[in-house]
Amino acid sequence: MHASGNNAPAQRIKAIDLPVRLFHWLTVLAFVLAYVLADHYRVAHQWLGYALGILLGLRLVWGMIGSYYARFTTIGASMLHLPSYLARLWRREETYSPVYNPLGASMVVLMLLNLAAIVLSGHLLTTDRYWGDDAMSGLHELTTQIMLVLIALHLLGVLHASLRQRQNLAKAMIDGYKRAS
């Protein structure tokens, strides 16, 4: 990859650390398996739900003590610029961010909160109080459907940003490197 306007190689930075990448891909795997196995393999579905809860807990801890780019303070600071970023995006003048643009940061928070709702409602369905409870079951199914919509929006956002920035953001979630500027 070359910086625009010259032949010098683009500077790359380690923008996505290993714990975040592991969380991302293990969460993808566990969520897809839990979704696919939900109707016929309840025990596996439940254990995958517990695995998602553990992953979420570890990500919350890493969001407080992890690397600069993994911290929720960095994500939250980016989110503060969402209105101006959306205006620039509308005008096709968005600026480059080496890690989370404000829309991406907002998606991270929405997906984490929704995942927490899925895990909590799923766990509550295993308790005496909520076993077979239609409202809790409905909440679990609704939050799962919302996650599917968020995933679709996330993938569209990654595709859009990859095309606009001329870099492979999916690859960055594998090797951790993004263009510095």
Rank of each mutant, 00 (worst) to 15 (best):
D39M: 10
R129S: 12
V36M: 14
P83F: 07
A116S: 13
M147V: 03
Y130K: 01
N6P: 05
W25E: 01
D39H: 11
R88H: 12
G132S: 03
A10K: 07
G63P: 00
N6G: 10
W25T: 02
N101I: 06
L142H: 03
K14H: 15
L115K: 04
I13A: 07
V43D: 14
P9H: 09
T73F: 08
V158W: 00
V32G: 07
M107Y: 10
S121Y: 01
Y85M: 04
G49W: 00
L26I: 03
L60Y: 09
L37N: 02
L60V: 14
V20Y: 00
K14A: 10
V149H: 05
D133E: 08
L80A: 13
G53S: 12
L142F: 13
G57Q: 10
N168L: 04
V32L: 11
L120E: 05
Y96W: 10
I174S: 03
S121I: 04
M107G: 13
A38P: 01
T74L: 09
L153M: 12
Y50N: 09
N101G: 06
G66P: 00
R42V: 15
Y35S: 04
W47G: 11
Y69D: 15
L150F: 13
H45I: 11
L29P: 01
V28Q: 09
Y177L: 10
S137Y: 06
T73G: 06
Q165Y: 08
R12M: 15
G104F: 05
L37F: 15
A135P: 01
V61D: 08
A10F: 07
A51F: 14
R88W: 05
L29D: 05
A44K: 07
G57D: 10
F72K: 08
D39Y: 09
Y96V: 10
A44Y: 12
H2N: 13
W47R: 09
Y69S: 15
P98K: 07
A34H: 00
I16C: 03
T126N: 09
R92N: 14
V108Y: 00
A161H: 02
V158G: 02
F23M: 01
T73D: 14
L58N: 02
S137K: 07
A70F: 00
L169P: 00
H140G: 04
T143C: 12
T95P: 04
I174L: 14
A152W: 06
L142Y: 09
L18V: 14
A15E: 00
L80K: 15
H40A: 11
K178I: 05
L124T: 03
A8P: 03
Q11S: 13
L58E: 02
A170G: 02
T74I: 10
N114M: 08
D39V: 05
E141V: 10
A51T: 15
